[in-house]
């Protein structure tokens, strides 16, 4: 988890899910205290100050820096839209945008069904499932750097898993082959984040009233039918929340890929956040890196607001009732 990117992932994990539901709730909540005006704004000033200084101001700053030339050391100088035209014409950034889209969709296709199945599975109260669940969450304790380093060793064609199990399929040059490397990245991301999403589905599945299943059983519905006609529809808000987090979170994976492949081989795994870092802190072109950052912010914001809107007001209701 979370951290930098994990920290970032954690932050972006919140995207969409908490945002509207809570403010919706706030609007409706009656204010029970009769007299007085409540606590003073001063109470919120320290938190606001930190947030403004290191989140709001940089957000404005990144737009300004996208219009400047800056090598990271000297004083930024005005560049106009030069960085924008260069970045929007850069094949590297095009490639990164395309890869980000692939990673975003790939993540969802892999993680959403698995997280749902695993989450529903561990929502059961059997002893062995509780035992399995405790182990399922273990990836959450590793930093992205730790996970990436471990998988690098594990996937070594000569001394890793392939050699241990003597399975030729596993003895490939996983991180050296451009096509395979992207698959590995998707797999390791799934390994890292499925525990978190199955946690959401576990919580969601446990909220489904048992009476629905009992009624369906009386009607003679099979397990398969119960899954499709009760479990899935009842989990729809969890599906939306979790999917939003997966999609927006895909814009934030940095440390895992950075340690695993550094964007390589070639540029095969160089997604946008990595492109931003490499352009800014390796090529010392902070202006162009800021352009990429602005694109990330706009896409992320649009995506979470769009998904929030698409999911509609009903979802907020359900979240309020305690998903």
């Amino acid at each position: 988890m979370t951290t930098d990117i994990e920290a970032g992932a954690a932050v972006s994990r919140g995207a969409g899910s908490g945002l509207l539901p809570s403010s919706g709730r706030a609007r409706r909540a009656p204010r029970p205290n009769g007299g007085g005006h409540g606590p003073s704004l001063l109470m919120a000033v320290p938190a606001l100050a930190f947030f403004a200084a290191f989140a709001i101001i940089p957000l404005v700053g990144v737009v300004i820096l996208s219009l400047m030339n800056w090598d990271g050391l000297g004083t930024p100088t005005w560049a106009g839209f030069d960085n924008w035209t260069r970045t929007l014409a850069s094949p590297e950034t095009h490639n990164a945008a395309w890869l980000s889209l692939v990673v975003m969709i790939g993540n969802w296709v892999i993680q959403a069904p698995l997280s749902l199945l695993i989450g529903v599975f561990i929502a059961g109260h059997q002893r062995y499932r509780a035992f399995l669940a405790a182990l399922y969450f273990l990836p959450l304790v590793f930093s992205a750097a730790a996970t990436a380093i471990a998988f690098k060793a594990l996937l070594d064609p000569n001394f890793g898993l392939g050699a241990a199990l003597k399975i030729p399929f596993l003895k490939q040059n996983w991180l050296g082959d451009p096509t395979l490397a992207l698959g590995v990245v998707l797999f390791v991301i799934a390994w890292t984040f499925i525990p978190f999403h199955s946690l959401l589905y576990q919580a969601g599945a446990r909220q489904i009233p048992a009476s629905l299943y009992e009624a369906a059983m009386l009607d003679g519905a099979s397990g398969w039918q119960r899954f499709w006609q009760i479990t899935i529809p009842q989990l729809r808000y969890t599906i939306i929340t979790s999917s939003t987090l997966m999609l927006v979170g895909s814009l934030t994976y940095f440390d895992l890929i950075y340690v695993l492949t550094q964007g390589g081989p070639g540029n095969a795994t160089r997604i946008l956040p990595l492109d931003m870092y490499l352009v800014g802190f390796r090529s010392f072109d902070m202006g162009r890196a800021s352009v990429i950052a602005v694109i990330l912010v706009v896409v992320g914001l649009t995506l979470s607001l769009a998904l929030n809107r698409a999911s509609g007001a009903n979802r907020m209701e359900s979240q309020m009732e305690g998903m």
């Binding site: 969409g16 709001i56 700053g61």
Partner: peptide, 22 residues
Amino acid sequence: FSVILLGLAIPLQATIIPVYYM
């Protein structure tokens, strides 16, 4: 509350360059 929640919808690490500058 609304301002603070805005932080959840934005990939904040995209602000790393201005943070570095500051």
